[in-house]
Every structure is written in structure tokens, then in C-alpha cells.
């Protein structure tokens, strides 16, 4: 009986080891690498989190009287606090930000950055920390959640904006009114001349601060995700930031940062 128990435990242990090997293999495949993450090690050995931000994209990063400030700056600082390390900012623009990342001058790009599949071999992109896409703004509570829901409606857009370009293929199914600016589009909604406006999420949030009667759809009808980028070798850092973003979305940390600016 005792021998049979040992045999059973031995087989169980073998299966557990096999399972662990399989799971670790799949996990490594999902991150695309099994190489050491030297950035993660450096950060956790008392290092600094070095973040590239683009100060030409307010309110995500810009110079104000107090210095560098914005949503991206606060997200970076909050990540540094989670890791227990200070954050050093490096100013980057689009032209040089990926070179700065590839050559190790920065650990992360947090710069109102959209994911680019052409760089997927070199870069990990996190989930979106903000969606700057096109949202519906209106005066009633029940707002459309999909482009199809706009069928038969009168919708104002800013002329030649991303919202305008998104609706043009649907022109036969709804009435599109063009405004020369976002402000004009909002005013047309407030005046009750149309059912909705389709404008970018940032403009919508700012407008709803000025005009509390405006309702803004919870989700973007056309997505424009802003993500964090890092080298593909930094898979531990990637996993850690993904976990943090998940936690922040649950406990409201992320929304609190965004609300301070939008």
C-alpha cells in the first residue's frame, strides 16, 4: 500500500513537472523570447526607469510652468512608484524615439503612441492605457456604441478629421454635417441641430467639462489606442506593466490620472 502511494506520488510529481515544462514553454512562446531581461534586472537592482516622452503632444506631455507634465508623465511616474525606482525622462520625437529605444537610451516609450505592427519584431506594445479614438457626443443618455447604430441619424463631424473620414463610406446611411472645427461641431449638438457629433475622445472629454449636459459614449466607435512600447527582449518588464495596467484599470488609478487632465 505504501509502495503504491509512493508510485502514485512519483507519477503525480512527474506530471506536474511535465505540465510546468509545457506551461513555461507556452509562456515563453507567447512573449516571443526566453532570453534574460537585463532591463528588468537593472531596474530592480536600484536602477532608474528611463522613459521617452514627446513634449509636442499635449495633454500627454508638454512643458508647463512647473516643468514637464501630462498624462504620459504621470503614467510613467506611477509606474516608477510601482517598481520603487525613480523615473528619468528623455525627450523624444517621433523621428528618433524608436532608435532611442533600440539603442538602450530609454527603457520605455510613453508618448501618445499608437501600436505599429511593422515594428512587432522589435517591440512589445502593451494594452491601451487610453483610447483617443472617435466617440459619440450627444444630449441623451442612450448613445450609440457602434458605427452601425448611427444609421438614419444626423451626425456632425469636424471637416476632414478622422471622424469625417470614418463616416464618409457610410454616407448613404446617415446624414453627415461638416463643421469647420470641433468647437463648432459641439455647438451644433448643443443647439439641437443634429443627433450626435463624432469627434475624438480628447476633444469630447474636454467639451463635456465645459458643457456638463453633454454625454460621451463609453467606448470609441473608431479606436485609436495609445500604448507603451519597450524592447522585445524586455519581456519581464512587459509582463509586469501589463499586470499593473490591468490592476490600474480595475482600481481606478488610470482613470484618475486621465481625469486630472481630461
Amino acid at each position: 500500500m505504501r509502495g503504491a502511494g509512493n508510485k502514485f506520488l512519483g507519477r503525480l510529481a512527474g506530471l506536474v513537472i511535465l505540465g510546468a515544462m509545457l506551461v513555461s514553454s507556452l509562456a515563453l512562446r507567447s512573449t516571443g523570447t526566453g532570453s534574460p531581461d537585463y532591463t528588468w534586472r537593472r531596474i530592480h537592482e536600484g536602477g532608474t526607469l528611463v522613459v521617452g516622452v514627446d513634449p509636442s503632444i499635449p495633454p500627454f506631455a508638454a512643458f508647463v510652468d512647473e516643468g514637464l507634465a501630462g498624462i504620459d508623465v504621470e503614467v510613467a511616474q506611477a509606474l516608477g512608484a510601482e517598481f520603487g525606482v525613480p523615473v528619468r525622462f528623455v525627450l523624444v520625437t517621433y523621428d528618433g524615439m524608436f532608435d532611442a529605444l533600440y539603442t538602450g537610451q530609454i527603457d520605455l516609450i510613453i508618448a501618445a503612441l499608437r501600436p505599429d505592427t511593422n515594428r512587432a519584431k522589435q517591440v512589445f506594445y502593451t494594452q491601451a492605457y487610453f483610447d483617443a479614438g472617435q466617440v459619440v457626443v450627444g444630449l441623451n443618455d442612450a448613445l450609440p456604441q457602434h458605427l452601425d447604430d448611427l444609421s438614419g441619424q444626423r451626425v456632425v463631424v469636424e471637416f476632414a478629421s478622422d471622424g469625417d473620414l470614418a463616416l464618409r463610406p457610410l454616407a448613404g446611411y446617415l446624414t453627415i454635417i461638416s463643421a469647420l472645427s470641433v468647437e463648432e461641431a459641439i455647438q451644433i449638438v448643443l443647439d439641437g441641430e443634429v443627433d450626435y457629433a463624432l469627434i475624438d475622445a480628447i476633444s469630447a472629454r474636454l467639451a463635456s467639462r465645459t458643457h456638463p449636459q453633454l454625454q460621451v459614449s463609453d467606448t470609441a466607435l473608431v479606436n485609436d489606442p495609445y500604448v507603451i512600447a519597450m524592447r522585445r527582449s524586455d519581456w519581464r518588464l512587459y509582463n509586469a506593466i501589463e499586470n499593473i495596467l490591468n490592476q490600474w484599470k480595475t482600481d481606478g488609478t488610470l482613470e484618475a490620472i486621465i481625469r486630472r487632465w481630461l
Binding site: P55, S56, I57, P58, F60, A62, A112, A132, E158, F159, A160, S161, D162, D164, L180, S181, V182, D200, I202, S203
Partner: peptide, 14 residues
């Protein structure tokens, strides 16, 4: 005419 770039104008202005 990027919607957020500090050195951009609105699409109609462009």
C-alpha cells in the same frame, strides 16, 4: 493636421 500635435493646425485650416 494631427489632432494633438502641438505644431499642427485643424484639417480645415490646413
Amino acid at each position: 493636421d494631427h489632432p494633438r500635435y502641438a505644431y499642427a493646425v485643424r484639417p480645415a485650416q490646413r
